[in-house]
Design a binder for these strands. Structure first.
Length: 591
RNA sequence: GCGGGUGUAGUUCAAUGGUAGAACACGAGCUUCCCAAGCUUGAUACGUCAGUUCGAUUCUGAUCACCCGCUCCA
């Protein structure tokens, strides 16, 4: 009867089109020609995003005893970004390969040896031309023909289709140049000359205060997490919480992305939902509980245990976040990528990317990192303020330890530190740290689940988007579009329709039902057009239920059906006869 | 930022150096109308700015945005 259609137009384009047509997402500043990398949410998009945001906030803090909320400003003291490392890592000098535009950090170019070959340009049989001069390093021992082949290949892959086949590209006016040794002016991979070093600042700079001098420079935050670390001590001191506990925050963040792309997936302004969950260092757990629980496949992650170290907590949060994604209907499109030691930042112990299947590929939705005490220690160092907390239970347990037991803990830590390739602590530093620990003081370690709200919204839209071809009674084929959104996040929960709009009794009854529902659920009233069209309109925006007031409702078919309505399900179109007095409860139990 | 592509009603697409058209969607109306039905009827577009030209949506240039690569990790 129905079958999924083949994509003649790419699915992503259909989704973008639907989003605009029905008021989910518009291009920013469209009447002025747009604005790169930023998008606005229309009426339905705003509802959808709010539902997702609320669901996250509810599960992350309101339904938990151990997580508190925070709502910090986008603007902060710029010293925060120096401490977090963003000023350094987001402002590297970069140089671009003149042939392929691949970028390398100016201070990370491996010196190259070889002979410089110059060309005035290139052209291909297709009529395509590379109009500028190029210089490429022929490496020692590289045969001239294989070198030329390599250059043609690089040109072809960068120019794309217009240049045609690599072998049909002609290199113009070849001249042999200087022999260079240990030069940092050529791209290590391609051998092509590098352009000038240019700063690549991915943070959005702004001025705080009307004078706008260099002294007033600060940045729009590139992530929400740093405010949590900066306010960690205030939250701890004002909330009567004990480690382990978390602080979560939802808010806008800004990055000057080199290439915003894939609709809202990579934007320059986006909304993050981040949790920093603070835990005791494993050594503290060992002192208090006698041992640290080891993770193994199938371990019980249903609820926190006192002997959990960072690894169990990390697994726990991956599990919690997975359950969340299942609750909004994304369970079956998730994938996980466990970063390898080579992927990890030096301060991170583990990081899992939760990936989701999008029409343009499988991409990251959320990252869950175990970051040790890196962030708090950075802010402690840069601010000069102690961010240590005092743990009474730890102090009591440590006091009871024998000196031998203490020394054993220190030795074990020393062994792991010396095994590290870089960043390992010295023995003096380790002993100083344990001295504070045995007195009950430490910087909490952190597990950081960090999710993108805009990505989540795009993910649920992409997952929900479904089209099929249907033949109507006359054999004419039409495309049916349904957004199969999970009812809990659908922007509109129920549509209310009088079967006919020219019958005042039906309309007034329908308005009554609408008034009854709209206080409790986001309800949409529609009387225009045929009933089937109204169902279809709601299907397209993902409304899970439709309520129709018909002549039976008015009692025409006898008293039994009086004051009952047809409730029609979006997925499958099944219909139920429900009493108006039961309607709100009936719907609420299914959302 | 660099290279390639694209830009016409709300959407998806036509055509044209001189008056821009369709389908669907949208508004109004008729119809005891349960899955985008039918009939009547209405509104709406050449991304922006220059140049060539008597005249540009069409040709040229610039610019902006989007898509695909380089990038990136919410």
């Amino acid at each position: 009867m129905s079958s999924p259609i083949k994509a003649e137009t790419p699915v992503m384009e259909k989704i973008v089109s639907l989003c605009k047509r029905r008021g989910f997402i518009y291009q920013s500043s469209e009447i002025y020609g747009g604005c790169g990398g930023v998008w606005d949410y229309g009426p339905l998009g705003a509802e959808l995003k709010r539902n997702l945001r609320d669901a996250w906030w509810r599960t992350m803090t309101r339904e938990r005893e151990d997580v508190l909320g925070l709502d910090a400003c986008i603007l902060m003291n710029p010293a925060i970004w120096a401490a977090s490392g963003h000023v350094a890592t987001f402002a590297d000098l970069m140089r671009e390969c003149s042939l392929t535009n691949k970028r390398v950090r100016a201070d990370h170019v491996d010196p190259q040896d070889g002979i410089v070959m110059n060309y005035s340009g290139a052209q291909s049989a297709t009529g395509w031309k590379l109009p500028r001069a190029i210089a490429v390093l022929m490496k020692k021992g590289e045969h001239i023909e294989s070198f030329r082949k390599r250059v043609r290949l690089l040109i072809a892959s960068n120019a794309g289709e217009p240049a045609g086949k690599p072998e049909e590209i002609e290199l113009l006016d070849e001249t042999k140049g200087d022999t260079v040794e240990q030069s940092i002016d050529y791209h290590p991979e391609t051998g092509a000359a590098l352009g000038e070093a240019r700063p690549f600042n991915l943070m959005l700079k702004t001025y705080l205060g009307p004078t706008a001098t260099e002294a007033d420079v600060t940045y729009l935050r590139p992530e929400t997490a740093q405010a949590i670390f900066a306010q960690f001590k205030n939250v701890f001191d004002s909330s009567r919480v004990k480690v382990p506990f978390g602080i979560c925050q939802i808010g806008k963040a800004f990055r000057n992305e080199v290439t915003p792309k894939n609709f809202t997936f990579r934007s320059r302004e986006f909304e993050q939902m981040e949790l920093e969950f603070f835990i005791k260092p494993d050594e503290a757990v060992a002192i208090i509980s006698g041992s640290v629980a080891a993770w193994s496949e199938g371990a019980d992650l249903s609820g926190p245990k006192p002997d959990w170290g960072w690894e169990m907590w990390h697994r726990y949060w991956v599990d919690q976040r997975t359950k969340f994604y299942q609750s909004i209907g994304l369970g079956d499109v998730l994938e996980y990528y466990w970063q390898t030691p080579a992927d990890l930042a030096h301060y991170a112990r583990a990081c899992v990317d939760i990936l989701c299947e999008f029409p343009f590929g499988t991409e990251e939705l959320e990252g869950i990192a175990a970051r040790g005490d890196f962030d708090l220690s950075q802010h402690q160092k840069h601010s000069g303020k102690s961010l240590e907390i005092f743990d009474e239970e730890l102090k009591t347990a440590a006091t009871a330890l024998t000196d031998e037991a203490k020394e054993a803990l220190i030795q074990r830590r020393l062994a792991t530190e010396s095994a590290k390739e870089k960043g390992g602590l010295t023995e003096v530093e380790v002993r100083a740290w344990f001295e504070r620990l045995f007195k009950g003081f430490y910087l909490p370690h952190v597990i950081e689940p960090s999710a993108g709200l805009d990505r989540m919204a795009l993910a649920v839209l992409a997952k929900a988007f479904y089209q099929y071809e249907k033949e109507d009674g006359k054999g004419k084929s039409e495309t049916i579009t349904i957004l199969r959104l999970h009812p809990s996040i659908a922007p509109v929960k129920v549509g209310v329709f009088p079967l006919l709009k020219n019958k005042p009794e039906l309309v007034s009854k329908a308005r009554e039902v609408y008034q009854l529902l709209k206080g409790r659920l986001n309800t949409f009233y529609d009387e225009a057009g045929a009933i089937g069209r109204r169902y279809a309109r709601q299907d397209e925006i993902g409304t899970p239920f439709g309520v129709t007031i018909d002549f039976e409702t008015l009692g025409e078919q006898g008293g039994e059906l009086k004051d009952t309505v047809t409730v029609r399900e979006r997925d499958g179109g099944a219909q139920h006869r429900v009493k108006i007095s039961d309607l709100a409860g009936w719907l609420a139990s299914r959302l």
